[in-house]
């Protein structure tokens, strides 16, 4: 009797393990395989620089759009830059580039909730592409109407996955 129970438990354990392995294999890795060492550092630098460029583009867009009479040449350039950066952003968060790897404001939660995080990145990319399309029409009203969604996509991710600004 006892042997049967042990055997059953072992079988259950094996099945559970294999299931876990299966999900691990089938779940899409957020960007790429785990990185470390110099590669991790270079990704983190690229991410930090990239995010600063995203911020700068957003500030230019905010200043232009909220001025009431935007310089559409500046808006188009910033919108195109934003779209390009957004496309790259999905490669900025490979496993191994979290707080354990060095100074970063990327929270460990990113790699604990990979699906939600990937959805947030996708949301950013969609919003940036939509805004760029709106901006390239050259119509200030169209661009203005589309900027809000882009801002929301920044905030949606930053609220949960970025730690406070270090001074």
């Amino acid at each position: 009797m006892r042997k049967t129970i042990v055997a059953a438990a072992a079988v259950i354990a094996l099945v559970a393990c294999s299931k876990q392995n299966q999900t691990r294999v089938s779940a899409p890795a957020p960007a790429s395989a785990t990185v470390s060492g110099a590669k991790a550092k270079s990704v983190m630098h690229e991410r930090s620089d990239g995010m600063k460029k995203v911020g700068k583009a957003m500030k230019i867009l905010g200043a232009q759009i909220k001025s009431g009479a935007p310089d559409m040449t500046a808006v188009k350039a910033a919108a195109a830059a934003m779209d390009g950066l957004a496309r790259k952003s999905s490669a900025w968060f490979p496993a191994g580039t979290g707080p354990d790897a060095g100074k970063t404001r990327a929270k460990a939660e990113i790699w604990l909730k990979p699906q939600d995080f990937a959805a947030k990145v996708k949301g950013f990319q969609t919003a940036a592409a939509n805004f760029n399309a709106a901006a390239q029409t050259g119509n200030a009203a169209t661009a203005t109407a589309s900027l809000g969604e882009l801002g929301k996509s920044c905030k949606a991710c930053h609220d949960n996955y970025r730690s406070d600004e270090h001074r």
């Binding site: 911020g55 583009a57 957003m58 500030k59 867009l61 905010g62 200043a63 909220k66 920044c154």
Partner: peptide, 22 residues
């Protein structure tokens, strides 16, 4: 001042450059 993400800014921030508002 402008916030770090460029989402919100003080009412006079657009009078100065983005870098100065930062």
């Amino acid at each position: 001042a402008v916030d770090e993400d460029g989402l919100n800014e003080g009412p006079l921030a657009h009078f100065i450059s983005v870098d100065k508002a930062d």
